[in-house]
Amino acid sequence: MINTDFFITPDNWSFAGIILSVLVIAAYLLFLKTKTSQKAYFIVTVILLYVSFGSPIALLRDYGLHSLTMLQHIVLLMIAPILFLKSIPSNTILFSEKFKLNILQQPKNYYLMFWWLSAVMMWGGHFLSAGILSAETGTSICGITATKDSWITAIPESLILSLLFIAGILFALPVFNPVKSKRLAPLKSVIYLFTACVSCSLLGLYVAFSASTDTLNSSLTAFTTLRSPVPLTLRADQELAGMLMWVPGCILYVLASVSILLSWYEENPVEKSETAIHTAK
């Protein structure tokens, strides 16, 4: 039985988080001049971040739910960065010529590096989180076991999560750069996203299908997950984790690819270069 009380107890909703979110949104609305759609993207980004960090859902992590870590990773690495970049106006100082950081100036020149960085972060972050979770709860996660005082517990979870978010933004930058002219060419973007999708799928597949079927304690709602408000067997938990990464994670990039292609089909270089000349004048 899912314990609904857990989700409606006000104590489980971080008040500080709400204040912070409101402030951030207010600041965004006050200081940046953006289109309505961009405002919507920004608000959704903040809500997503709040839900994965300040809501009862985030607290589920303490019960050793592997799937929850995966959800956080997906939000941070894959979804939030794209929405975030879409909400940023193209004249933001970070992306303007004045800000002389080449990586942000011409991110598309670094796309291979970003791709690898985010892939390493995705796999590495995942296994580190699994290790930490295992150390904290004493269960074996995804075949990983760590003892209570293992070195892995010295790594703060928040560090991993922040790095994931940064890697996510860098990954998304070549394709979703607020400055349109600095994006990768459409077909390259599709390949870029698709290969990333393969990498997510492999991780998802691995996690889902390595769920162990043979030990008794994987098929019982054992230990920590027993007390969890969302009781899952270890096996279901792990499969859920893998499938989340695989299916919705992949579909996200498929949708992004399709929307890139839809505008590419109508693209006309003649018109494009004409408008370029106009604006140059």
Partner: peptide
């Protein structure tokens, strides 16, 4: 574009041929 979507999604559905082999409800 829907062709591309089909091609990408085509690799994420094969297990529907195996619903009866005894995988869990999650999968």
């Amino acid at each position: 574009a829907s062709t591309v979507a089909i091609a990408l999604l085509a690799f994420g559905v094969w297990v529907h041929h195996m619903f009866a082999v005894g995988m869990t409800n999650t999968v």
